[in-house]
Design a protein around this nucleic acid. Structure first.
Lengths: 213, 213
DNA sequence: ACCAAGCTAGCCAAATTTGACTACTGCCGC
DNA sequence: GCGGCAGTAGTCAAATTTGGCTAGCTTGGT
């Protein structure tokens, strides 16, 4: 699983109705091009694919108001909303060692109630500890450590990642439990999309020079 | 970049001459299916692709000695060896926040001389620190922290990952500097491939049940 | 008046990755 | 003496991802 479906669903959902370029801009606004695979091609592909699967509804729209080819606007469907929350919950819980997945979920976690987020994150910690136990038991007791030569550094690295990941998650749990942020049902939500025409304060400054990466 | 090219080149290189199924078994032996995308399809594709690009030389071989369709054996070329070391160096250095890339490089680092590995790892630490500085400067000073709501947790998470990643790398540097492991030019290398017919001590026990994942 | 940049919006071919499927062989139990 | 399971070696279609390309409008400078 990559993070792109959650990101695209989330962007469309926050707008109510959005075209591809708008989604693309939101993702840049969120810095997603830095930490996930959100090239234009991937975004447009995800939109089309999810429209074909009934997660999004495509509206054919007349030539754009601001240059370029005619645009297609998308709206999230009932089914898409279900998928959105399913992905969100899964990505908050799963220790999948792909940072982009957790990152995307962090960006949307406030769409869930505080108590549920806490439960999911605690489940996440449990999963990491389980994984750790399984790996150490499976790869270690054979002939004791030190038999592996430099290959042991691989396990060392993964255990270190798991441990620091769990520790960070516990910190987040503490902050959320302590009242940080505004979750679903707690009043005005924090909105993180660009309105039509608003300029992106995090734009890179570099011109779009034909999408060179 | 994914790790698969380095893994496949490395496996073929250690065997001298290997067919796809052998590579597939080595990767399972290394546990690579746990931490990288090494499905059979990816492996066979990588072999073919790299043969087409001149990194591997394909020998057509008669029907296999042990059932199944005829096999193709591969050998690494001069050009493939260059690519192998280029990837290895790049993956040890780059802070690319994709754990599989570093992991694959760790498995082969002993193919380089100790001093070079130390230099590459120190470069890696420098890169991480640079990245950290760029990110904090770029995303923070605008209106000070706390303006971002829960979105700030994303940066928090990435900084935490970078910091613990740098710390782990420093630990590895210390171990290597302290004389751990046997590097290129230091005597009998540690060989981590399965010989023809040797059974895999880390086989999962589960039957190969048609490659279900 | 006009033209070079740059922005808006999106498409496309090629490469890669995934998940499932095929075909053959040896062997074990009945 | 044969049915089926496990193992060997690989293929294939579909989905995804990448990197680059297109084409229409706007705007600032000359």
């Amino acid at each position: 699983m990559s993070a792109i479906r959650l990101l695209v669903l989330g962007a469309v959902r926050q707008h109510g109705r959005a075209h591809g370029y708008q989604v693309r801009n939101d993702l840049e606004y969120w810095g997603a091009h830095e930490w996930s695979n959100t090239k234009p091609g991937s975004i447009y592909h995800a939109l089309k694919q999810m429209a074909k699967q009934g997660l999004l509804l495509a509206h054919e729209i007349a030539p754009s108001t601001a240059g370029g080819p005619p645009r297609v606007e998308y709206e999230i469907t009932e089914q898409g909303t279900e998928e959105y929350f399913a992905l969100l919950r899964a990505y908050l819980t799963a220790y999948d060692q792909r940072p982009d997945v957790l990152t995307a979920a962090l960006g949307f976690m406030v769409d869930l109630p505080r108590e549920e987020v806490l439960a999911l994150l605690e489940e996440r910690v449990r999963k990491i500890e389980e994984w750790r136990a399984a790996v150490t038991e499976y790869y270690l007791p054979a002939e004791g450590p030190g038999q592996y030569g430099h290959i042991g550094e691989i396990m060392n690295y993964w255990l270190h990642s798991a441990d620091t990941g769990a520790e960070w998650t516990r910190g987040l749990v503490a902050r959320v439990r302590g009242g940080a942020y505004t979750f679903a049902g707690e009043g005005a939500p924090f909105v993180g999309v660009l309105a039509e025409g608003e300029e992106n304060p995090f734009a890179t400054g570099r011109p779009h020079d034909g999408d060179a990466h």
